[in-house]
C-alpha cells in the first residue's frame, strides 16, 4: 500500500484466550507461547504491509470472561505483545469491573507500572454493564490518575449508548473517552449531542460508515476529536483509509484523523 499517511490504528484486538477457543469447542493446537509468537508475527506483518505506525490493542477474551482465570484475565497476552513489538503496540488494559474496587485499582496500577499499558478498553455490551454505573468508577479513577484514554464500544446496546458516554464523561472531565464505532448505524443521531455535552469525548471510526456524520463532527468539533480505527487488524485497511480520504474535509484534517489525533492522545512520536 502506498505510504501517504501517518497511520495509527486506535482500535485493535488480539485473538488469544478462552473466548476464541471455547467458542470452537476445540483445544488450541498451539501452546500459549506459540500463540503469542504467532500473533506478534501477524501484527508485525500487518503493520509493515499497510504502513501503520502504531496500533492500540486489547484482548477480546478479557472482556468476554466475566470471571477471570488468571490475575489479569488475558491482558497478559497484550503485555507480551507490547514487549515483543517494542513501541508499536499501545496496550489497552481491559479491567474486570465486577471485581472489588480496590482490586481493580491495584491491577490497573500494575498494568501501567509493570506491563506498560497506556490505555483502557471497555466493552459494556459483551461484558454486560452500563458504562456509567458506579462499578466503573474505580476504572475511571485510575484513568484520571495515570492520564489513560478510555476506549469503549458503543452501539445500540443499552449498556453503551452515546448518552452514557456523555454521563460518564461529565463525571470524569479529565479523562479522554473514545467512543468506539460512533454508535454504529443505529445511534448516529446521538453522537453529536453527546460530544456537545462533554468535550472529553472522542470518536473512533470503525464500524460507522456515514460520511456526512464524520464531516459534521470535524466541522463542529475539529479533527482532533476523531481517531482512525479498524477493529482489526484485517485486510480491509485500504478501504478504511479510502473512506477517510474521501471525506469532504481538509487534507490536514484527514492527517489528524488517520494518525495525529491518536498520537497526541497517547503521546506517540511520529516516525
Amino acid at each position: 500500500m502506498e505510504r501517504k499517511w501517518f497511520i495509527v490504528d486506535a482500535h485493535q484486538h488480539i485473538e488469544i484466550g478462552s473466548y476464541i477457543y471455547a467458542s470452537s469447542l476445540e483445544k488450541p493446537k498451539l501452546s500459549y507461547e506459540q500463540m503469542i509468537a504467532r500473533e506478534a508475527e501477524r501484527f508485525e506483518r500487518w503493520f509493515n504491509k499497510y504502513g501503520v505506525s502504531y496500533g492500540a490493542v486489547s484482548n477480546i477474551s478479557s472482556m468476554v470472561d466475566r470471571v477471570w482465570r488468571s490475575r489479569h484475565g488475558g491482558n497478559e497476552a497484550v503485555a507480551e505483545l507490547i514487549r515483543l513489538l517494542k513501541g508499536r503496540v499501545i496496550g489497552q488494559y481491559v479491567p474486570n469491573v465486577f471485581e472489588p474496587p480496590d482490586l481493580i485499582r491495584e491491577k490497573i496500577e500494575e498494568a501501567v507500572k509493570v506491563f506498560g499499558f497506556k490505555g483502557i478498553k471497555l466493552h459494556p455490551w459483551v461484558s454486560a454493564f452500563p458504562l456509567n454505573h458506579p462499578i466503573v468508577y474505580p476504572v475511571f479513577d485510575m484513568a484520571a490518575k495515570y492520564r489513560l484514554p478510555v476506549l469503549s464500544h458503543s452501539a445500540r446496546s443499552e449498556f453503551c449508548t452515546p448518552m452514557l458516554f456523555a454521563d460518564i464523561a461529565m463525571h470524569y472531565p479529565e479523562v479522554p473517552i473514545i467512543m468506539g464505532h460512533m454508535g454504529k448505524q443505529h445511534l448516529h443521531y446521538d453522537v453529536i449531542p453527546a460530544m456537545r455535552i462533554a468535550e472529553n469525548i472522542y470518536v473512533e471510526t470503525s464500524g460507522s460508515k456515514i460520511q456526512i456524520l464524520l464531516e459534521r463532527i470535524v466541522k463542529e468539533f475539529g479533527a482532533e476529536r476523531v481517531l482512525f480505527g479498524t477493529d482489526g487488524p484485517h485486510d480491509l485497511l485500504p478501504a478504511y483509509v479510502a473512506r477517510i480520504e474521501d471525506l469532504d474535509v481538509g487534507e490536514e484534517d484527514k492527517a489528524w484523523i488517520l494518525g495525529k489525533s491518536a498520537a497526541k492522545l497517547f503521546n506517540l512520536p511520529e516516525p
Binding site: I210, Q211, P238, A242
Partner: peptide
C-alpha cells in the same frame, strides 16, 4: 452512495480479492 464513500465500499471487495478471501 451518498451515505458512504462509494470508493471505500468498492475497495472492500478489492481488498478481499487481493488478500485471497
Amino acid at each position: 452512495w451518498p451515505t458512504t464513500s462509494m470508493r471505500s465500499e468498492l475497495q472492500e471487495v478489492f481488498d478481499l480479492w487481493d488478500s485471497g478471501h
